[in-house]
Design a protein around this nucleic acid. Structure first.
Length: 464
RNA sequence: GGCGGCGUCGCCAAGUGGUAAGGCAGAGGUCUGCAAAACCUCUAUUCACCGGUUCGAAUCCGGUCGCCGCCUCCA
């Protein structure tokens, strides 16, 4: 039984999809005005873990992730670079897809773009106007919060309690109530606009998610995800406009991922602690370790990103990879052991229970590491057999459909010059010229090749 | 001011009423070239602090201190 913490209820509840066996999932995607940063990826990796877990437990998942390609920032960026909006956003959309591939994040089924769904948004806004949930002022259209009594249910915010932070853009658009939010922005000089039944203009931010989720997933769907900062106002507004429009419940489960901070501080460009995935790759960090690090802290806890943590993540993965390497390359006797079988059953059970409990990945990883230790002990005693190894590898491959950071059968070919170096080193070792041997080993290590001298001779491993 | 979260070994991180998982780092050992890698063993009488409830609390209640997030377009 899968259980998730539902922001709407404020508690963990058993997950039950609308249609048995199928999960309709919508996750808030990137605004494509810059390269996504590691904080964004924390959210995307959480969503990836969620989706892979659902699939692991047998659900078919229909996943939609929006791409916000028109808003203040994308418009500002395109102006700054003297490009059309599309030309400008295309670069970052492409980068986004490269990045999620690097992190082994599974692709969504649909990536709808805001600019391609203007008609759908117009239709909803028209409906809201007709039903009295929206009003027009100076060419812009606003959602009337007072017409939707449930407003604030998700974020537990009462409108009366809202403090004006001075960030409210009061002069730019005139609204009846300061908390009403914009559905449609009137055309402004020098900005892109669409000629529609609502008049010339462009959509507000919130409406795209309502329009696109409804189009691909229906008026009511199972799970909606995003970062905690989206709870208010974005998701609150989505609920208001969607439910006011359809008269139906919008989403059953709202799952929110907490923030990532860097060295205990909020990531910001001015503090110089702002990292994109590309920044980390340029520093030669392993994407698998980045994935591990972003995934290994429970999604509802603040994740403090540090380079020390990234190193630790890399070492942790290496331990698992070593284990896989040994299973794949050591010679085992024919047969099967009852003991290993039992360990595997117990481990598998614990691993699953962790995931089922609101994606408690720590528990699942503990199960994995404990198994590695137990099997290593048996392995040293020669009490692991061929069939056992097959079963363990099979299971590891299965859990990797969730984890996504393990590699199997990594044995790649080494280039001839490297092989020659290894031969040279073996010769040096035979001649007890250890200074030269160590020098060669160090040299290869820097290239990501580890040499190990064992009883059976020298063997090599590629890391990274 | 309103709403919410967090504080567990040097670092990361589970556990949320039954007597402290796991990873990294560190120490010792096996192997070995008194090497590297790998593997094994060990490493918190204690869970920010002070009270209370209880046979029993890191876990519940009250208070204190510290840190953080959101409060109109930041995942």
């Amino acid at each position: 039984m899968l259980r998730f913490y539902n922001t709407l209820k404020g508690e963990i509840e058993t997950f039950k999809p609308i249609e048995p066996g199928v999960v309709k999932l919508y996750t808030c995607g990137p605004t494509v005005y810059d390269y996504a940063h590691i904080g964004n990826f924390r959210a995307y990796i959480f969503e990836d873990l969620l989706k892979r877990t659902l699939k692991y437990f047998g659900y078919r998942v229909i996943h939609v992730m929006n791409i916000t390609d028109v808003d203040d920032k994308t418009i500002a960026g395109s102006k700054r670079e003297y490009k059309s909006l599309n030309e400008f956003t295309e670069k970052y959309i492409k980068a986004f897809f490269e990045d999620i591939k690097t992190l082994n994040i599974e692709k969504a089924d649909y990536y709808p773009r805001a600019t391609e769904h203007i008609d759908e948004m117009v239709k909803i806004i028209k409906g809201l106007l007709e039903k009295g949930h929206a009003y027009e002022k100076d060419g812009s259209i606003y959602f009337k919060i007072s017409s939707f009594p449930n407003y604030g249910r998700l974020s537990k915010i009462k409108i009366e309690d809202l403090k004006s932070t001075g960030r409210v853009d009061t002069d730019e658009y005139t609204k009846e109530n300061i908390h009403d939010f914009v559905l449609w922005k009137a055309k402004k000089e020098g900005e892109p606009f669409w000629e529609t039944e609502l008049g010339p203009g462009r959509p507000g931010w919130h409406i795209e998610c309502s329009a696109m989720s409804m189009k691909y997933l229906g008026e009511t769907f199972d799970i909606h995800c995003g970062g905690v900062d989206n709870i208010f106002p974005h998701h609150e507004n989505e609920i208001a406009q969607s439910e006011a429009y359809t008269g139906k419940k919008f989403v059953n489960y709202w799952l929110h991922c907490h923030h990532l901070i860097v060295n205990g501080e909020k990531m910001s460009k001015s503090k110089g602690n702002f990292y994109t995935l590309r920044d980390l790759l340029a520093k030669n960090y392993n994407p698998k370790a980045i994935r591990f690090l972003l995934m290994s802290t429970h999604y509802r806890k603040v994740l403090d990103f540090t380079f020390e943590g990234l190193k630790q993540a890399n070492s942790a993965i290496q331990r698992i990879q070593n284990f896989i390497y040994e299973l794949e390359n050591e010679d085992f006797h024919e047969g099967e052991s009852k003991e290993v079988k039992e360990i595997l059953i117990e481990t598998s059970k614990q691993f699953d229970e962790g995931l089922e409990d609101d994606l408690n990945i720590s528990v699942s990883l503990t199960a994995l590491f404990s198994m590695i230790k137990k099997i290593n002990i048996l392995r040293n005693k020669k009490k692991v057999f061929k069939k056992d190894v097959e079963n363990i590898l099979k299971w590891l491959k299965k859990i990797n459909t969730v984890l996504g950071f393990l590699e199997f059968e990594v044995k790649k070919e080494l280039p001839p010059d490297i092989l020659a170096k290894i031969k040279e080193r073996e010769k040096a070792r035979r001649e007890k010229n250890y200074a030269l041997a160590d020098k060669i080993r160090e040299e290869l290590f820097k290239k990501g090749i580890i040499l190990e001298d064992t009883k059976e001779g020298t063997r090599w491993k590629i890391i990274k």
